[in-house]
């Protein structure tokens, strides 16, 4: 038997996490108390020797179920598998200080991801935008074409942290945003010129702000 770890929440928020969500290989997820944190885990008959896209989707879906219940979750990287619950808890406690600190400082926050396709030639119109915002937004797009995107958080005051990463077919820009500011965040993002195929994904678990990335 093995313990698969999906994510971490503050212990006080654990009762709000819905129990029994199907996880990797359809194993039911449960909460494992580990000091100041509670871990979202499931039991696998053995450590899987292969990886599938379904496993990736299941990992994300477990975290999403907690986010949808209003809980701030620190995502754990894919395939963190331990011998048993005690082994998992021992490792978690070794890392609990920085993770607890991030969760305490950002309780109530979620991650939003702005996905920009590799081709940024088609720009949506933004009729209602303030002129200065359009100008800065277009400068942003020009920088994006050069693969050197400047921080968007200067244009979006609701953003508490920002991190970007390259995708095979575009760029993902992660934003740390309080749930209470999500409506204003979305409205502000809509004023920035963007490629027609751009997408906003979220609210999500905190994937990009829990492992040493800077928080604004």
């Amino acid at each position: 038997m093995a313990t698969y770890l999906y994510g971490l929440v503050l212990a006080r928020n654990a009762p709000r996490v819905p129990p029994g969500t199907p996880g990797v290989r359809a194993a039911r997820v449960r909460l494992l108390p580990c000091g100041p944190l509670s871990a979202l885990v499931s039991t696998l008959p053995q450590s899987p020797d292969s990886v599938s896209l379904d496993d990736v989707r299941a990992h994300d879906a477990v975290l999403q179920a907690a986010v949808d219940a209003g809980v701030t979750v620190a995502a754990v990287r894919f395939r963190q598998i331990f011998a048993d619950d005690d082994d998992a808890c021992r490792h978690i406690k070794e890392r609990s200080d920085p993770v607890s600190r991030v969760l305490e400082e950002n309780d109530g926050a979620v991650e939003m991801r702005l996905l920009l396709p590799a081709s940024v030639n088609s720009v949506s119109s933004v009729a209602s935008s303030p002129p200065e915002n359009v100008g800065r937004g277009r400068a942003y797009l020009e920088a994006l074409r050069r693969q050197q995107p400047p921080p968007l958080r200067r244009l979006i005051p609701q953003v508490r942290g920002e991190a970007s990463s390259s995708l095979p077919n575009g760029i993902a820009i992660a934003h740390l945003v309080q749930r209470t500011a999500l409506e204003e965040y979305r409205a502000r993002v809509a004023t920035i010129p963007h490629p027609r195929d751009a997408r906003i994904v979220g609210p999500l678990a905190l994937y990009s702000f829990v492992e040493g990335e800077s928080v604004a």
Partner: peptide, 29 residues
């Protein structure tokens, strides 16, 4: 294209982001 973009972001963030608790396990397996 948006579907591909969303899928590649899902794979990117699940495989490459998040807290690493026991990194040796993931890499070796």
């Amino acid at each position: 294209e948006p579907a591909q973009l969303i899928l590649s972001d899902l794979v990117n963030r699940v495989l490459d982001k998040g807290v690493v608790i026991g990194s040796n396990i993931t890499i070796s397996i």
